[in-house]
Amino acid sequence: MPDPILELRDVKTYFPIHRGFFIKRQAGTVKAVDGVTLSVQRGEVLGLVGESGCGKSTLARTIMQLVPTTGGTVVLEGKNLTQGSATEIRRTRRDMQMVFQDPYASLNPRMTVFATLAEPLIVHRVCPRGEVTTRVARLMETVGLAPRFMQKYPHEFSGGQRQRIAIARALALEPKVIIADEPVSALDVSIQAQILNLLAELGRKMNLSLIFIAHDLSVVKHISDRVAVMYLGKIVELGPAVDVIERPRHPYTRALVSAIPTPNPDLERTRQRIVLAGDPPSPISPPAGCAFHPRCLYAREKCRLAIPSLVADSPTREVACVRLAEI
């Protein structure tokens, strides 16, 4: 039975571009997120993939209400966040937390682990002051760090351990949704596996919903229940993770999957690879019609005319391509 905890309806986030130094005038808009409709179930892991600049991080920030939305609604457990006051948003932040890519930049170097983990507990008055230390110790144990390191500073930890601290900070308020923006991209493979296992285990144990943003499809496939593929501010394909990555339908997803090098020399040397021409287009002046058509192998005249919307291809899969039936 579907039990959505988070629902996005036609969410748009535009940024104005200003020209001129003394007299500022608006010279255009970057449509970073352009009409995203999406829901996340309780306890679900939703993977969000796409190339850099496709708007996946902006979407995360929009959900967190860290950037103002231009249009659409973000609903968390029935509360519409886009119309909430600042106080209300601050209160809902308890239920939504974020883990960032770079554990070197996202922790304050002047705060000890204790200070970092105690701050949210104190700000949100989660527990009496006297209990803060025990809560922090418990948090550290949850993410596999020894509480005796409580008084240490971030620089005394390795990248993987710092990411554990960042995860502990996100867990401090017992949120219902965690948004992890490329949490393992900066880590080595052997450390990456540890963090992925930790996130998967915490998600299961605490019945957390996790939005997992990454550009590495194999990582996303491993951890996610469903996956959404973004291109230039729009979702082009959405469906069960294994299904989407093993049987991609949208031409962009197909190219993305085929571009990933696999650790299998025989397969790597024989398989047919779709190499896309060119770079992703600029979101300032996106191509007319389907934004992917200039790089698409299957593009026809009609792709330049109509903007395809996300339609159901099967009961579980949605794809945004006008030629879907023909390819």
Binding site: V189, S190, Q192, A193, L196, N197, A200, L217, S218, V219, K221, H222, I223, V242, I245, V257, I260, T262, P263, N264
Partner: peptide, 13 residues
């Protein structure tokens, strides 16, 4: 420890 595209295990090594 590589999350391979070929296999989906529950827990990574």
């Amino acid at each position: 420890s590589i999350p391979s595209l070929q296999a989906k295990g529950r827990e990574l090594f």
